[in-house]
């Protein structure tokens, strides 16, 4: 389903939390709303499932104004994940995941099957977890259950409000990776709020940067890091070039820039370092710096020689020439 904010504003007294916000999310895209705290990103997100009603403007889901859809009806078809997870402590994991299907009056057998399927999807063995109580789960496990609960009724839209903000960095990375995997199989329209730029770059198809209730810029991660707007440059930080490199893999770059040259290595001599094609360009740069070389041999995970990666490739990509 498509999603759209059309001149949405929200005022609390004199303060405008969201100011004339307009943005469209195409079907199946993941939009990340990012910005400093108090920038209005959470308020904008909560307008979609009407936990916040805009003071003016409207929100359209598939072209329909959400204020015309009965609120419980709307919410039951939008998955919602929050930072504090908010599992119901008096229900076990299976009952928590089955909450929305129960609201939609599915029958028991169908709910049970769906719960098992979802536990499987989020990587928690159903036999060990479906009877567990929320109080006994770790932060990471709880948020997996939270994601499973949001996906239970197979909603076309998923709203995630800093879902991985409360877990330790290691778990966060695991959850992000798993979430990317889940998303690639489900293809839902997702709005994801975070204040962590790295998370935004890693997950987003499109990143919308907000400040003071206004949309500053919305662009694909690669483009955003090249944006000349002073606020964006400040927000993305001095290491934005490294962030760009971190997004790109050696394999993609080799394919785009240097033709595979079996046998010869060109004129810059024979590189001695090796880099796997599934590594990022940032890792490649680090390896070059470490080895004091300006080029590396790229090899596929199976060990096949794929070509040469040069410092020039990295410079072009970091500056955004040719590819975005």
């Amino acid at each position: 389903m498509t999603l759209e904010w059309r001149n949405a504003s929200k005022a609390y007294g004199k303060k405008r939390a969201v100011n004339d916000f307009s943005l469209e999310v195409p079907k199946g895209e993941l939009l990340v709303l990012v910005g400093p705290s108090g920038c209005g990103k959470t308020t904008s997100l909560r307008m979609i499932n009407r936990l916040v009603d805009p003071s003016s403007g409207k929100i359209l889901v598939d072209g329909r104004d959400v204020s015309e859809i009965p609120v419980t009806e709307l919410r039951r078809h939008i998955g919602y994940v929050i930072q504090q997870v908010g599992l119901f402590p008096h229900m076990n994991v299976a009952e928590n995941i089955g909450a929305v299907p129960r609201l939609l009056k599915w029958n028991k057998v169908k709910i049970q099957a769906r719960v098992r399927e979802l536990l499987d999807l989020v990587g928690l063995p159903a036999d060990d977890y479906s009877e567990a109580w929320p109080a006994h789960l770790s932060g990471g496990e709880a948020q997996r259950v939270g994601v499973a609960r949001a996906l239970a009724a197979d909603p076309p839209i998923l709203l995630m409000d800093e879902p991985f903000g409360a877990v330790d960095p290691l778990t966060r990375e695991v959850l992000q990776r798993e979430f990317l995997r889940i998303r690639s199989t489900l293809k839902k329209t997702v709005v994801f709020v975070t204040h962590d730029l790295d998370e935004a770059i890693r997950l987003g198809d499109c990143i919308a940067v907000m400040n003071g209730g206004r949309l500053v810029a919305a662009a694909a991660p690669g483009e955003l890091l090249l944006n000349a707007n002073p606020f964006i440059r400040d927000f993305t930080g001095e290491d934005r070039a490294l962030r760009r490199l971190a997004r790109l893999s050696v394999g993609d770059t080799i394919g785009q820039t240097t033709p595979i040259a079996p046998g010869g290595y060109g004129d810059s001599g024979t590189p001695t370092g090796l880099i796997r094609t599934d590594a990022t360009l940032k890792e490649a740069l680090s390896l070059m710096l470490e080895a004091g070389e300006s080029s590396l041999n790229a090899v596929s995970p199976s060990g096949r020689h794929m070509g040469k990666l040069t410092m020039e490739n990295l410079l072009e990509n970091a500056a955004g020439i040719g590819v975005s």
Binding site: I82, Q84, L87
Partner: peptide, 21 residues
Amino acid sequence: PLPALEAGRGMGMSRRQLFWR
């Protein structure tokens, strides 16, 4: 806990459901 209430509201529980469930 407030997050439980927020989650309940967000998933589409009516006021009555929120109270009883």
